[in-house]
Design a protein around this nucleic acid. Structure first.
Lengths: 229, 229
DNA sequence: ACAAATTTAGACAGGCTTGTCCAATTCGTC
DNA sequence: GACGAATTGGACAAGCCTGTCTAAATTTGT
């Protein structure tokens, strides 16, 4: 025994208690997504989590509370992933195009295409109308802050002379729209794009983005273009 | 009596038979979208359609058949709207930016934001996994042909010297992604953007699109740009 | 090894839904 | 006005699901 006794004597959570709770939430996320809230069945969730039905009720009380727990869990993890990824935005880019493509791929892989991202998106689409306040929280902390943070990064790149941007918020939304442009249908059907599809969409999107927003340079052959009102 | 007797003497459909069928399908679309397939309840559909439950069964036989009828109906109407709208694409544009914005607004208003568009999208997102072959049909006839048709129009504009495009298919997908960039969240929650939001998103999207793809002109006047290759 | 807490399997009531059946009624047509 | 088809409202069985309860089995901490 390598843990000091006496440090946490009271209400020490039994070992697998929390582990089972996590299993249940994970299984519930999967079943809620596959079957919808109304179609999800507690027996199936219990079976998929490898616990008995009663355990599900012991931990979460009620189908609706379980659903809320699932959404909160997914929201939290997704937002954490989003901010970790935004933190990797290229501030002093060596090769702006390559850096933006890599960033877009990371964003897709870690936040949008992964299990949590796909599940959360589907739950929002399917049940968003039924739990407005639950998803309002997501909306504010997730996409709202994502766009702001991204806009701030773009503004910085513009200030540093790498981009020529009118409204950074618009540019941020358009950036995300562009790098996902070719994945829309796959997302709509709940599918998972291949690594190659993600890369191609990001590449095409970033190239178009830079065609629109790259600082107009005056290379040797075109030196006169910059003088313009 | 202006119809020749004897032409269709047998099984002549009574007048309001078809009207009720339509009512039922419309109500079913609404309820399936709001509640999901599993949560949709035939009594509610019947009530919302203003008919008795038995009539629903008389017309469509079965919950699943009713669902299929709803999806086919929505798919058909949406595709019809899409092609009508694509036909209004500006081929010989007077003012390319204004024409593309107007086209984007029409596309949004008539195909994506309207009742059928929102309903179909939600059903695809929620139940796409459960009826792959049903939505495969939509996928092929809807977005697939939309993109091809749009790509062909862009290629034509490029050939006429109005745009400078690498891959027309990519440009078509990016065009749609850009003009919807600011409506994503609203769509995700199943909401209906205001006319002003649609216009703003389209305007911002088209401007960025043209920044990336407009034929590069020589800024002096614009007289020299055409002599090229 | 012992005691407490947790988990399990199963039964169970209550409620809701689907799909069918049927008699009474309404509607459209002649 | 009369006929036939469609519609209605309601009853009905069968099935499924939620949420509770219980007693037995298992796990956990000491």
């Amino acid at each position: 025994m390598f843990m000091k006794p006496g440090v946490s004597p009271d209400t020490f959570p039994p070992r697998s208690h929390e582990a089972k709770r996590v299993s249940v939430v994970d299984a519930a996320a999967s079943v809620f997504c596959r079957e919808g809230y109304a179609g999800a069945n507690i027996d199936l969730i219990a079976a998929e989590a490898g616990v008995s039905r009663q355990t599900v009720y012991n931990h979460h009380g009620d189908k609706e509370k379980l659903f809320v727990a699932v959404v909160r869990d997914l929201t939290e993890r997704c937002n954490a992933g989003i901010f970790a990824t935004i933190a990797s935005f290229p501030d002093q880019p060596a090769d702006l195009e390559a850096d933006l493509i890599a960033f877009a791929v990371r964003m897709n892989r870690n936040c949008i295409c992964n299990r949590d991202g796909r599940f959360l998106r589907k739950l929002i689409q399917a049940e968003g109308g039924r739990y407005p306040e639950l998803f309002a929280e997501w909306r504010e902390h997730g996409p709202g802050r994502t766009w702001s943070a991204l806009a701030a990064r773009f503004a910085r790149l513009a200030f540093a002379g790498h981009l020529s941007i009118g409204d950074p918020d618009v540019a941020a939304r358009q950036f995300l729209a562009l790098v996902n442009a070719e994945l829309q249908i796959t997302f709509m059907l709940g599918g998972m794009p291949t690594e190659e599809e993600v890369l191609r969409s990001a590449t095409n999107g970033v190239r178009t983005f830079l065609s629109a927003f790259a600082r107009k340079k005056s290379p040797a052959g075109k030196q006169a273009a910059l003088v313009h009102a």
